[in-house]
């Protein structure tokens, strides 16, 4: 048997964390260590990050006594009388309880987020970054300060239009990104570059041929961001342009330009959208690509819906969307509310909490209750 | 804010495949769970059961007997209570984290794959 002892005042600095198969894999990999990270000390939630993945930490309280004990050698050995052994074998070792816990940490896979506090927007300014508070800090510093794995940071950075200009991490403004994309496509088309194998340096060289002599805002890093945001990496440092993503970008910009203040007939919008591409670019377009960015106030017309105007409160958002359009196809409606589905319900289950569903022929439409 | 978790100790354990097969881990730790509150004095008393270890007051509170063949366990608490329980393999192993507030560091010191758990009402010691 074993003698059990306990400290009279337990050490509160021990905690337990569930080691899922993913965490065990991260522990045994050659990649850098696990880290606890957080946006800020006061309000936000702690995440656990490996090199490639991020998990939200969740505290699971329980009502039992859990004592953590370790083998030790008591300083004053006492012999035990047989009568105090209650009929079980003599103790051969001793354990000392040093901590008690009333909870375990669970982990739930989540998306890493980049901390963009203090990251300036770059719109092609000549003296960038000027007196930016981020001066002197590197991209690695931005990633280190983000509740995210490094791998997710790298992918997400470019998705956001992240760039490093004059040594300063920044986000390209939508205008800057649009212009850079347009110039890059035009130059690549002019030089017949292969859109499936665009190399940043080669692409940068052809862009420089086409811009005016003097200071061009389309530095190598900007071109690199364009390729990374609108492409997928090949094995050999080249990028394959994602045509659908490029078409979508042009489409959203076209909605903002031509269909913001009032609705526009769909056919007219499609023509205008097509006209915004570089000549002979050959990108296919389909209004379904822009779901989540427009509504159809009347049949056959489209109007831009800015994500900035969408209420944060779920009921208010549903109300606003049904005011814009009384009846929606389920697929067109879902992109407008999926960010509110924080519990991860099936999307139509989530929608049905706040709206009504009707079948019209083969289609499912959503309308207000 | 961020803090790296030092994992060299458990990494070596996992890579050596030296896993816990007994109630105590290869590092000598054990997890004891009781469905109830374990009441232990907060201050020392003039009694044999109280002593000290490395300058810290401790008290002997029980006697544990484990049968690894049947995975059954008996825990005697004080002089009056007897609990019957079992050795259970954890569905998900638990990492033991030590937070050092002075240095601001965190270390994963061990991994528990088993615990000894007592869920039944205590019986009197006859």
């Amino acid at each position: 048997s074993t003698n059990l002892y306990s400290r009279l005042s337990c050490d509160p600095s021990y905690k337990l964390v569930q080691l899922t198969p993913e965490l065990l894999e991260a522990l045994t990999s050659d990649e850098p260590q696990l880290q606890f990270k957080c946006f800020d000390e006061k309000r936000s939630d702690v995440v656990l990050c490996s090199a490639r993945r991020t998990w939200l930490l969740r505290q699971k309280n329980h009502s039992n006594t859990v004592m953590l004990m370790r083998e030790f050698l008591p300083e004053d050995e006492q012999t035990q009388e047989d009568s105090s052994l209650f009929g079980i074998p003599r103790p051969i070792n001793d354990l000392l309880g040093y901590s008690r816990t009333t909870y375990e940490y669970e982990t739930r896979a989540t998306e890493g987020r980049i901390n963009l506090d203090l990251v300036p927007i770059y719109n092609g300014e000549v003296n960038f970054p000027g007196e930016s508070k981020l001066k002197g800090r590197t991209l690695k510093d931005v990633f280190d300060n983000s509740p995210s794995s490094e791998t997710e940071c790298k992918v997400r950075w470019y998705q956001l239009g992240g760039c490093v200009v004059n040594g300063c991490p920044c986000i390209l403004s939508p205008d800057m990104l649009s212009n850079a994309l347009h110039v890059t496509l035009m130059s690549a088309l002019a030089e017949s570059l292969d859109f499936d194998r665009l190399h940043p340096c080669e692409t940068y060289e052809v862009v420089q041929k086409d811009v005016e002599k003097g200071r061009s805002p389309y530095v190598l890093e900007v071109v690199r961001t364009v390729l990374a945001k609108f492409g997928t990496p090949n094995d050999d440092e080249t990028w394959k342009l994602n045509r659908r993503q490029v078409a979508q970008w042009y489409g959203v910009r076209a909605l903002q330009k031509f269909a913001s203040r009032h609705s526009v007939p769909l056919e007219e919008f499609l023509i205008k959208w097509k006209s915004t591409f570089p000549p002979f670019a050959g990108f296919d377009i389909d209004i379904k690509m822009l779901r989540g960015w427009f509504c159809e106030p009347t049949r056959g017309t489209v109007q831009y819906v800015s994500k900035d105007t969408l209420p944060v409160d779920v009921k208010d958002r549903f109300k606003m969307l049904f005011k814009l359009q009384s009846q929606w196809d389920l697929e067109a409606f879902a992109p407008f509310i999926e960010d509110l589905n924080t519990k991860g319900l099936k999307i139509d289950t989530f929608i049905m909490k706040y709206a009504r569903k009707r079948r019209i022929g083969k289609k499912i439409v959503v309308c207000s209750r | 804010p961020s803090v790296a978790i030092s994992t060299s100790q458990v990494r070596a354990l996992l890579l050596s495949e030296n896993r816990q097969t007994n109630v105590t881990t290869p590092m000598g730790n054990m997890m004891l769970e009781i469905q109830g509150d374990l009441e232990i004095p907060e201050t020392s008393h003039a009694d044999d059961r109280f002593s000290s270890h490395e300058g810290v007051d401790i008290v002997k509170f029980g006697l544990l007997h484990v049968n690894m063949e049947t995975k059954s366990a008996t825990l005697f608490i004080g002089k009056k209570q007897r609990l019957l329980g079992s050795v259970v393999k954890l569905d998900t192993p638990l990492g033991l984290l030590k937070f050092n507030h002075k240095s601001g560091t965190v270390e994963m010191q061990d991994i528990f794959s088993y615990k000894v758990i007592f869920k039944n009402r205590p019986l009197p010691i006859m």
Binding site: C38, S44, V46, K60, N61, N64 | -
Partner: peptide, 28 residues
């Protein structure tokens, strides 16, 4: 002897409550 070493039994077990963890919680 004015002390007790005792298990106060609880009839049930509950572990349904879960919450996110703040930096302060982590170090508390």
């Amino acid at each position: 002897k004015n002390f007790r070493i005792w298990v106060r039994y609880k009839e049930g077990f509950s572990d349904a409550v879960r919450k996110n963890v703040s930096w302060h919680d982590l170090w508390s």
